[in-house]
């Protein structure tokens, strides 16, 4: 076990995988000479050379396009798109091609690529640079969407994403790169894609979150515990496939649920989780399921305004109290 930042964990996982398989190549804006905008590809160019670690023009369409085409033709590209807001420029390639070349041609083609990108607000970047929209990609059959909450999971899930033969959107929360965690040293440390994890157990309320909101939810749970309200906190880790099993098991005990996401509530992850609970566990529902999310507005630049719009520990505490009472 080594304590690493999330940025270093990603760089380490990439290096280990590239060492293992020569077909793995890395491409994106600033990934080579400068080791990535967030330092998540640091050291790869020196170690693996310019044929395997490639800087690209600021051209999201062809970054994704080159990755899909190369993946169809035998490589295993890991493309970095600097932010999920810019990935809209690559959205056609991701949802119309990466997600479909396998099925639409009757299984002839494969698309073993990972598209790494960052998501989330909290950096005073204004409304176009601060969105959390990975759930949009989770809408599409054919894609996998992974968004881990901590360094250990980053390693295990990134390696699993690289090794799967399916296309994966791998979404990192942009304010978390310097967060540290204990990371297993095993070069074959893998976590299964499509498995949620119970992070804390409690009998009063089931709190469902992913990515940065797992930490927020755990802090809220600690707060609530002081008042004797015990929460189960579940980290989805993967948005597609969505593993509902631990959520359903917990909800049958707690009969209360709060979902927490950094995107907007409308048509979001919480809506999906709640709908599934209502569909499968109606007899266990003691109170309406609550969704904690970013307020339904574009994010503002000004610090206080941005913080006010984003979901906070207090928001989660409040939602759980309202639900449980």
């Amino acid at each position: 076990m080594t304590t690493l930042t999330i940025a270093k964990t990603i760089a380490t996982a990439l290096a280990e995988e590239m060492e293992r398989d020569r077909n793995i190549v890395v491409l994106g804006e600033e990934v080579a000479a400068f080791g990535g905008t967030y330092g998540a590809t640091q050291g790869l160019l020196d170690r693996f050379g310019p044929d395997r670690v490639k800087d690209t023009p600021i051209s999201e369409g062809i970054i994704a396009g080159a990755a899909v085409g190369a993946a169809m033709n035998g490589l295993r590209p890991v493309a970095e798109i600097m932010g999920i807001n810019f990935a809209f420029l690559a959205m056609d390639m991701i949802v119309n091609h990466a997600a479909k070349v396998h099925s639409m041609f009757g299984g002839q083609f494969r698309c073993p690529m990972v598209l790494r990108t960052t998501s989330g607000g909290g950096r005073q970047l204004g409304s176009t640079h601060s969105q959390t929209v990975e759930h949009l990609y989770a809408h599409f059959p054919g894609l996998k969407v992974v968004s881990p909450s901590n360094a250990r999971d980053m390693k295990g899930l990134l390696k699993a994403a690289i090794r799967t033969d399916d296309p994966v959107m791998f979404v990192e929360q942009a304010t978390m790169y310097s967060e540290k965690g204990d990371v297993p040293d095993d070069v074959d440390f893998l976590l299964p894609i499509g498995k949620s994890e119970v992070k804390r157990e409690g009998r009063h309320c089931t709190v469902v979150a992913y990515s940065k909101m797992v930490g927020v939810s755990l802090k809220a749970a600690a707060e609530l515990a002081k008042d004797g309200i015990e929460c189960t906190v579940i980290d989805l880790r993967t948005l597609r496939p969505l593993d509902m099993d631990p959520i359903v098991d917990s909800f049958k005990q707690t009969n209360h649920c709060v979902t927490v996401e950094e995107s907007w509530a409308m048509y979001g992850v919480g809506a999906e989780v709640a709908a599934r609970l209502y569909e499968t566990c109606l007899d266990y529902v003691d109170a309406p399921i609550k969704r904690v999310a970013t307020k339904d507005v574009p994010l503002a630049y000004s610090g206080p305004l941005e913080r006010y719009a984003l979901p906070s520990v207090d928001d989660v505490v409040k939602a759980v109290r309202e639900t449980v009472n």
């Binding site: 396009g65 080159a66 085409g69 190369a70 169809m72 390639m93 091609h97």
Partner: peptide
């Protein structure tokens, strides 16, 4: 136009291999 981008990726793989 998507095939232009996909073809570029196919060509990259051939160059790499």
């Amino acid at each position: 136009g998507a095939q232009i981008a996909l073809g570029t990726g196919l060509a990259w793989a051939e160059q790499y291999k």
